[in-house]
């Protein structure tokens, strides 16, 4: 127990001290911030995709809403971008309700496909809106006017802001996980039919999880805009972004508190470092390596990296059916 406690303290110290230790290298310092930012959106996705088992492949919708809200606050209202974040959360929750009510009735892959379609729909529509800058996108403040523009040269302030937000998201997830809602969500994930027969209002709880998840993904989008200062339909609503969020959570371990963070810890440095080392040669080797590593992890640890820790010698291995029978189209 004490050893475990010591390890936990050591981890907290490392996390807190990271940007100070790496102060000499802006690239490494920034890498820390990028990991945290990715972990925020992946952790937000985890609430609905991991715990409730509703695999959304369209979370870029909410990320984009967050990013666009922030940039709109600057462009149209002349406010610091970050003040658009609460607006983005509200819009995201509303949009999540509109998308969720019809699509959450679908089960399995049908839900995933519907979220892909909705994501593409939003991307195309956003590129036709002049108010949102159309296909050219919108840029934040070119030069920081006040500190509230959150436009810094050093990545250190971003690191601590992202860390605080991530802690908030994880804290809330932990609270949900242990409460009644967590219990319901797990029941729905295991068997929606069984959950319903026990009197769980499956539809309602799935929607709650979806809206909550949307709100936090939107915050990640707003923070992204503050750091990078630009968003266009592809970088805000692109399908690749949706898939990356999902892959990060799945790689670490979906439905586990720290799964998305572990996924981000592996994938973001992998992507950045391989691009730094190999990208300049211009043959796409970066993504060959990146793809191969994802394949290998999926092949040997289909439940994510965190499943490594769970394997205990005597514990009975969970026998999954070799061939799960195809899910029906209907959720009920």
């Amino acid at each position: 127990m004490t050893a475990r406690r010591l390890l936990q303290i050591a981890l907290v110290v490392v996390v807190l001290a990271y940007p100070i230790v790496t102060a000499g290298s802006p690239v490494w310092q920034r890498l820390g911030a990028l990991v945290l930012l990715a972990a925020i959106s992946a952790s937000a996705w985890n609430i609905v995709g991991g715990y409730a088992g509703q695999v959304s492949v369209g979370h870029a919708v909410f990320f984009g809403i967050g990013a666009y809200s922030a940039v709109v606050a600057f462009v149209h209202l002349d406010l610091p971008p970050i003040l658009g974040a609460p607006l983005g959360m509200l819009v995201s929750v509303a949009v999540a309700a509109v998308i969720g009510v019809p699509t959450l009735r679908l089960s399995g892959h049908y839900f995933s496909m519907a979220t892909i379609a909705v994501g593409e729909l939003v991307r195309v529509l956003s590129s036709t809106s002049d108010w949102l800058g159309g296909a050219q996108g919108l840029g934040g403040p070119a030069m920081p006017r006040t500190v509230f523009d959150l436009s810094f040269v050093s990545a250190m302030p971003y690191y601590y802001i992202f860390l605080a937000v991530l802690a908030g998201v994880l804290g809330l997830t932990w609270w949900i996980e242990r409460g009644r809602m967590g219990f319901y969500l797990r029941a729905i994930k295991d068997s929606e039919r069984a959950a319903r027969s026990l009197g769980v209002s499956a539809g309602r709880y799935k929607l709650y999880a979806y809206m909550l998840s949307a709100a936090f993904t939107s915050v990640a989008g707003s923070l992204y805009l503050c750091m990078f200062g630009f968003v266009d339909p592809e970088s805000g609503f692109g399908i690749l972004l949706s898939v990356k969020i999902l892959v990060m959570a799945a790689l670490g371990g979906a439905g586990q508190l720290f799964g998305p963070l572990v996924g981000a810890l592996i994938l973001v440095p992998l992507e950045e470092l391989s691009n730094s080392l190999l990208g300049g040669q211009g043959a796409g080797i970066t993504f060959v390596v990146y793809g191969a590593i994802i394949v290998i992890i999926a092949r040997f640890l289909p439940s994510g990296l965190l499943s490594l820790l769970e394997r205990r010698p005597n514990a009975p291995t969970k026998a999954a059916p070799v061939n799960p029978s195809p899910a029906s189209g209907h959720a009920d």
Binding site: V55, G108, A250, F287, I293, I294, A298, P302
Partner: peptide, 16 residues
């Protein structure tokens, strides 16, 4: 594995 593993694995294969 879970359904997610398919997306993970086949998406990795796609990039590769």
């Amino acid at each position: 594995g879970p359904m997610l593993a398919q997306i993970l694995g086949t998406f990795g294969l796609a990039l590769f």
